[in-house]
């Protein structure tokens, strides 16, 4: 007799649990305002990344086309993946001395793991995180970037 009742109570609780589940999905079906999907390419204009978002490494330049990088190479050694290459050049100063400046700050985006060690280790805060995140390109060579703009020079007050 006991098992006879158990048969029916089993059915009852099973149906009840199934209906509880259906209540959840049913509620979401009738509340379309809870939809969380972001419609990405449409919201590109309004899409704002967080300030600290790690998109890519960039080197900010001021309006005189000047940056803060001294070409010391600390970021190059700090990088665990070898995604930064510094090419240095020497120029003749007016006082006859030779000075080391940066020729090219090469950044391999395809090798970067966005750990942030280069930015943290930079003594002159020359490189920062950029907000750009649409990095997809058809040609891999486009991912190798030169961070200092052509013809740029170092801001005068930076001391090595």
């Amino acid at each position: 007799m006991n098992s006879f009742f158990k048969y029916f109570t089993d059915i009852f609780y099973a149906v009840k649990s199934l209906l509880t589940g259906m209540k959840v999905t049913g509620r979401y079906f009738f509340s379309p305002w809870e939809i969380v999907t972001q419609q990405y390419p449409e919201n590109r204009k309004t899409l704002k990344m967080y300030d600290r978002f790690k998109g890519e490494v960039i080197m900010p330049h001021n309006e005189h086309n000047e940056h803060r990088c001294t070409g010391c190479g600390i970021c190059e050694t700090a990088c665990p993946n070898g995604s930064i290459e510094i090419l240095q050049a020497k120029i003749d100063m007016p006082d006859g001395k030779k000075k080391r400046i940066i020729d090219k700050h090469i950044y391999h985006l395809d090798m970067c793991t966005f750990c942030g060690l280069c930015i943290k280790s930079c003594p002159s805060e020359a490189i920062v995180w950029g907000q750009e995140f649409e990095h997809a390109v058809f040609d891999r060579s486009k991912l190798t970037k030169i961070l200092n703009k052509p013809g740029s020079s170092i801001i005068k007050d930076i001391v090595e």
Binding site: Y50, R52, F53, K54, T113, F114, C115, G116, L117, K120, W129
Partner: peptide
């Protein structure tokens, strides 16, 4: 996570001795 450390999955937020940066 993204607001505080800039990335969503692979953060590298802790460093030996502390944190990369303060929390947001």
């Amino acid at each position: 996570f993204e607001e505080s450390f800039g990335s969503r999955l692979l953060h590298s937020y802790y460093t030996p001795g502390g944190l990369m940066m303060d929390i947001h």
